[in-house]
């Protein structure tokens, strides 16, 4: 017959001791699990920055394309014929590093959105910038003589460009970036800004309490 637990000095496992053993095992288990957590894949899928994201790219360029398409002033200017526009990549004045590709992406998506709609395609015509155009001619080995008279070539009338600004505050635990992304369409011959719009966003991030 098993000996009943009486408190001090009793042989066998008493309920109190068993509870303690379980608690000790639980602590050791938690320690082991948390320790072993350090050996798996490390960087969390929830890691994020205050940089401009793909979502910003989509929102911003959708907004700009809609604004260009809906502008009454541009509608008046394109009444008699399409605007011939050349693109300039983004001028980055933020504290975020934008690669060359990213700087082009932010204006080229606007072009693609406008070019997708047949009605708008008649109003906005996009041409390559001079450097890309001559690089292309060189690559394809097309001599200038084959291009025909200079007067017959399409000459850009407007330039679409964008400048991104930010107000950044950084400490070890906190970072905030307020972005102002300004797009403009400029008449190359007069320098007049015929259309402009901005996209603003503020992002902040606080590190976790511990790490």
């Amino acid at each position: 017959m098993p000996e009943k637990s009486t408190g001090h000095g009793a042989a066998g496992w008493r309920p109190g001791a068993r509870g303690l053993k379980r608690a000790f095992a639980a602590v050791v288990g938690v320690l082991a699990l948390t320790g072993l957590a350090g050996c798996g894949p490390a960087i969390s899928a929830h890691a994020h920055t205050t940089f401009l994201s793909a979502r910003d790219l989509l929102h911003m360029t959708d907004q700009m394309a809609a604004s260009l398409a809906g502008s009454p002033r541009l509608a008046a200017l394109t009444k008699n014929g399409p605007m011939v526009i050349v693109l300039k990549r983004v001028s980055n004045q933020t504290d975020e590093i934008l690669t060359r590709g990213e700087e082009e992406l932010f204006v080229h998506r606007v072009r693609v959105l406008l070019a997708q709609q047949p009605l708008l395609r008649r109003r906005f015509r996009f041409v390559l910038n001079r450097k890309t155009y001559y690089d292309l001619l060189r690559e394809e080995q097309i001599p200038a003589a084959q291009l025909g008279p200079r007067e017959s070539r399409v000459v850009p009338q407007y330039v679409l460009d964008a400048t991104f600004y930010s107000d950044t505050h950084v400490s070890r635990k906190f970072r905030s970036d307020y972005y102002l992304c300004a797009y403009q369409l400029v008449d190359i011959h007069t320098g007049v800004i015929v259309w402009q719009n901005t996209y603003e966003t503020k992002k902040s991030a606080v590190s976790g309490f511990l790490y």
Binding site: T34, L36, G38, H48, T49, F51, A205
Partner: peptide, 27 residues
Amino acid sequence: YEVMNSVHTNTVGRTLGAAVVYEGIKV
């Protein structure tokens, strides 16, 4: 640069592990 400027880089398990077990397991 990208990870240094990120927050919530460590998973919950790793953060807990760094706090309870050893700091060296955090990113």
